[in-house]
Nucleic acid binder design. Sequence first.
DNA 1: CTCCAGGGATGAT
DNA 2: ATCATCCATGGA
Length: 278
Amino acid sequence: MRLAHITAKDFDLARSLDSGQVFHWENRGAGYVGTIGAKAVYVEQLGERLFFAGVTAKVLARYFSLDHPLAEICRALPSDPAMTAARDFCQGLRIIRQPRWECLATFITSSMKQVAHIRQMSQALRRRFGARKTISGSHVHAFPGPARLASATEKELRECALGYRAKNLLATARLVASGEANLEEWRSLPDDALRSRLCELPGVGAKVANCVMLFAFERLRAFPIDVWIERVLKEKYFPRKRKVTPQQLRAFSESYFGEQGGYAQQYLFHHARKGGGR
DNA sequence: CTCCAGGGATGAT
DNA sequence: ATCATCCATGGA
């Protein structure tokens, strides 16, 4: 297959795909196969070029947020030791623009699960309910739409190893499929209102809502606090304090990281997980 | 085997 | 408002 290519500066494909944002891309040869929306995609990186097939250059560049001014964003990050180390470790890691429903559904399944298992559940859902596609000799599956999952039974979802999360995913799929929850309309809401709406959905609390805001609604201030980030914040920014409440962590992260909260959080998260940073 | 994971919902202080 | 408990499952 003949591949098209585009230039991608300040971008590390492998690092971005392996940073716990998206859970379905798989290694194939020198690159990766996956889906962007309903399209099957192959993509590989050679230096500052992305070689790809399956989508237009415009769709690919948008998905990988090649328009984000990464150098500028990194300069604007706080320059404390923890943040500097994370930033150096995460060069080229970009926040990916995910399809809204796919991101929401995937993070509903993510609660109390390791990244490896989120990948498993994503793949099981795709294989069982998603449209099968072929790209450069590989088979991939699109993520099933809300209507498809809404028509499934809780038992079928549990068979994808969702456990107690099956009930929440099913209930949310029904709300979205019925139009009672309109993710596209919510794009125009300010951050706080959007977060409130997301938190009304079964299986969505502040953490998942912030992930969806960051990864699917382009809210780059959103700062999801999971167990990893909680540890990092306590160790690096509240050294030897006995009681640090979730409330304090939230207030601190919002004021300290501010506009760059999303990238700051993702870099701290990835560094903590992959950096061997104890 | 035990421990823990990109948490959320519910009910008791 | 904070705290405790339960919820399934599988990787480490």
